[in-house]
């Protein structure tokens, strides 16, 4: 639908501006609260005395940030989260691409039925396997460690396997065939010829695995019991329930938690948008 006439353009602008307000206001309010003094929070927004000037913190209390970050060891949580993200992105991308290559390019007997099972597992709700998985990890002595959060990534993620195998199928067979005649084995063809061509698809998988791990709440909730091992997502929730009324600090901590994702978005906009358009979005 290509809009051409002036009137409808004006209407589109007005509609978009009106809708932008509820979209942007919560973020602006979060930022503004994070810089406010306690007394401005408690008087500024109250009933009749509420006004739009209360959007602007006066005075600007930058100290909310160091205060929030020292109330709870967020720097430790950040380190933990980055560690989990790095390892699980590495594991998920590596193994998903290997597995996807096997499904897409090698014609073995059980290929189709196993691929069918892979697709079916995507529809299985996590609640069904949650308890037996816990039993498995507990019997391995992994409860309270990061292993239950990391090791499954190395088994590949069904969604990424699906995505990558669709991509691998589109690559022409000739290149691989000539390498095969030159005596290259299948793994070398995968690692040296096919994988470098798949960079955009791999970037999509890496991004979504990163976001999934960064956001993950249920995993740490079930498996992590030691405060020194908390992730940002879990630590922020713990902060919320412990310091409920400290809105300025809570908003400051939330911004610290959100900002890396927003920065990542501005650096990798294309991967975000195309990734969501092709995969259907967040896990």
């Amino acid at each position: 639908m290509v809009t051409t006439n002036k009137g409808s353009k004006l209407f589109t602008h007005i509609a978009l501006i009106c809708l932008s307000i509820p979209a942007a206001l919560p973020l602006i309010w979060m930022l503004s609260t994070s810089l406010k003094a306690e007394n401005q929070i408690y008087t500024g927004a109250n009933g009749a005395s509420f006004s739009l000037t209360s959007l602007i913190p006066s005075p600007m209390v930058w100290a909310n940030y160091p205060k929030a970050l020292s109330t709870v060891p967020f720097d430790q949580y950040l380190k933990n989260t980055l560690f989990l993200c790095a390892v699980s992105v590495f594991g998920a991308v590596l193994s998903s691409s290997i597995v996807a290559y096997g499904f897409a390019r090698i014609n073995f007997k059980l290929n189709r039925p196993l691929f069918g099972i892979l697709i079916a597992t995507m529809a299985l709700p996590g609640q069904v396997t949650m308890i037996p998985q816990f039993e498995v990890f507990r019997s391995l002595g992994w409860y309270g460690t990061y292993l239950p959060l990391l090791v499954p990534a190395f088994a590949g993620a069904p969604f990424f396997i699906f995505l990558l195998s669709q991509f691998f199928k589109t690559l022409p067979e000739e290149v691989a065939e000539s390498a095969r005649l030159d005596g290259a084995n299948e793994f070398r063809i995968f690692a040296q010829i096919v994988l470098p061509l798949a960079k955009p698809a791999l970037a999509t998988c890496a991004l979504f695995q990163f976001l999934g791990t960064w956001n993950d709440f249920l995993g740490p909730l079930i498996y992590i019991n030691d405060t020194s091992k908390y992730t940002l997502a879990y630590g922020l929730q713990q902060f919320m329930s412990a310091y409920g009324g400290q809105w300025a600090q809570l908003m400051a901590a939330s911004i610290v938690f959100t900002l890396p994702i927003i920065v990542l978005f501005f650096f990798a906009q294309k991967t975000f948008i195309q990734g969501i358009a092709t995969t259907g979005g967040k896990n």
């Binding site: 809708l19 932008s20 979209a23 919560p26 973020l27 309010w29 979060m30 609260t33 976001l211 960064w214 956001n215 709440f217 997502a233 879990y234 922020l236 929730q237 919320m240 809105w247 809570l250 908003m251 901590a253 939330s254 938690f257 959100t258 994702i261 927003i262 978005f265 975000f272 948008i273 967040k282």
Partner: peptide, 18 residues
């Protein structure tokens, strides 16, 4: 319109509780 959807879930809950 897109930015709110990438705000991590736990941060979103903090913002809306507030």
């Amino acid at each position: 319109f897109f930015l709110p959807s990438i705000v991590p879930t736990v941060a979103t809950t903090a913002i809306f509780s507030w």
